[in-house]
C-alpha cells in the first residue's frame, strides 16, 4: 500500500462543500446518479427488463401472428375470426396490446426488480456503505426509488416502441395501410401502464426493505400477485365482505385500470373490470404514494447492521 495521503486537504474543502452538497435536492440527484450507475451495470436488471420485453412480444404479437398465419384461432383469443385476430396485431391496436400483460406478468417482473434493488442492499451490506457517504437516508432512498422508476419508464418506452415496430411490420407484411394509433390513446395507455408498473415496482422495493433481503420479498410478492389475489377474488364471488376487500387490493386496482384502458376484461390474465377506471386510478395512485411513504419511514427509523 502506498502510505502517502493528502489528509490535510480535506478540512476546508469538506467544510465548503457540505452546505451545497448535502441539501436534500442535491442529495437526491447525487444518489440517483449513483444508483443509476450501479443498476445499469447489473445483469439481473437487464434480465428482468429483457424477460418482460420478450414475454410482451411473444404473447402480444408472435403467437397471435403465428396463429393467424397458420389459420388456427388466436392463441389467447379463442373464437375470434382471422380478421379480428389481425386487427389486434395492427398499429391501431397498440394502445391495448402494450398494456394487457402489465397487471400480472409485467407487474410481477418489475416487482422482482424492486425487491432485488432494495433487498440485496441488506444482503450485501451496501445500504450500510451508502448511508455513510454524507447523504441523508431519505435522499439516498428517494434516489434509489427514482433509479428503479427510471428503469420502469424505460421498460414502458421500449415496450411501446417495440409494439409499434412489430405492429407496423405486420401491417407492412400483410399489405395493410400504416395507420398509426392516436397519440392521445398511446399516451393514455403509456401513463396507465406506467402507473401499474410503478406500483408493483414500489411494492417490491417496500417488500425488500421490510424483509431486509430479496428472497422473502420476491417469494411472498409473487405468491401474492400471482396466486393470493386471484384466490381472494374467487372467494369474493361467494362472500361479499371478501369481495369488498378485493376491490382495494393492488392487483384488482391494476387489472381494473388496464381493463378500463382496453375497454374489456379477459383476453389477458389479470385484466379486470371489477371496479371503475376512475376508482382504479385513484387506488393505484394511493398505493404509489403510500408505498413511497412506508419505505421512507422504515428506512429512516431502522437500524442498519
Amino acid at each position: 500500500m502506498n502510505a502517502t495521503t493528502n489528509g490535510t486537504t480535506n478540512g476546508t474543502t469538506n467544510g465548503t462543500m457540505n452546505g451545497t452538497m448535502n441539501g436534500t435536492l442535491g442529495g437526491i440527484v447525487d444518489s440517483t446518479r449513483a444508483e443509476l450507475m450501479r443498476l445499469r451495470k447489473w445483469p439481473a436488471v437487464w434480465i428482468v427488463v429483457g424477460a418482460w420485453l420478450a414475454l410482451s412480444l411473444m404473447f402480444g404479437y408472435l403467437f397471435d401472428y403465428l396463429a393467424y398465419r397458420s389459420g388456427d384461432s388466436g392463441f389467447s383469443n379463442e373464437g375470434e375470426t382471422k380478421a379480428q385476430l389481425l386487427a389486434g396485431l395492427l398499429p391501431p391496436a397498440v394502445p391495448d396490446v402494450m398494456v394487457q400483460g402489465l397487471p400480472m406478468f409485467g407487474g410481477a417482473l418489475v416487482m422482482v426488480l424492486g425487491a432485488l434493488a432494495a433487498g440485496n442492499g441488506f444482503a450485501w451490506g451496501t445500504w450500510k456503505t451508502v448511508f455513510t457517504q454524507g447523504k441523508p437516508r431519505t435522499s439516498v432512498t428517494i434516489g434509489s426509488l427514482l433509479a428503479v422508476s427510471a428503469f420502469v419508464v424505460l421498460v414502458m418506452l421500449v415496450s411501446t416502441v417495440l409494439c409499434l415496430g412489430c405492429s407496423s411490420l405486420i401491417a407492412a407484411t400483410e399489405g395493410h395501410s400504416l395507420t398509426m394509433p392516436g397519440l392521445g390513446d398511446v399516451a393514455r395507455s403509456f401513463g396507465g401502464g406506467l402507473l401499474v408498473l410503478e406500483m408493483w415496482a414500489l411494492l417490491g422495493f417496500a417488500a425488500g426493505v421490510l424483509a431486509k433481503g430479496p428472497a422473502l420479498a420476491v417469494g411472498l410478492g409473487l405468491v401474492w400477485l400471482l396466486v393470493v389475489e386471484n384466490l381472494l377474488r374467487g372467494v369474493g364471488s361467494l362472500l361479499s365482505v371478501v369481495d369488498a376487500i378485493t376491490h382495494v387490493l393492488p392487483g384488482t386496482a391494476a387489472g381494473s385500470l388496464v381493463g378500463a384502458l382496453v375497454g374489456k376484461a379477459g383476453g389477458a390474465p389479470g385484466v379486470l373490470v371489477d371496479i371503475s377506471g376512475g376508482r382504479a386510478l385513484v387506488t393505484v395512485v394511493a398505493y404509489v404514494v403510500a408505498l413511497v411513504g412506508l419505505t421512507l419511514v422504515v428506512v429512516r427509523r431502522r437500524d442498519v447492521a
Binding site: 448535502n22 451495470k41 447489473w42 450485501w124 451490506g125 457517504q133
Partner: peptide
C-alpha cells in the same frame, strides 16, 4: 447527520459492495 457522515469514512464489519461491479466501479 448527513453533514457528519460527509466528513467521515468507514469500514464497518466487513466491506459492503455490489458483487457484480468491479472494484473501480
Amino acid at each position: 447527520a448527513a453533514d457528519v457522515t460527509a466528513r467521515v469514512g468507514a469500514l464497518i464489519e466487513g466491506p459492503g459492495f455490489f458483487p457484480y461491479l468491479s472494484g473501480r466501479d
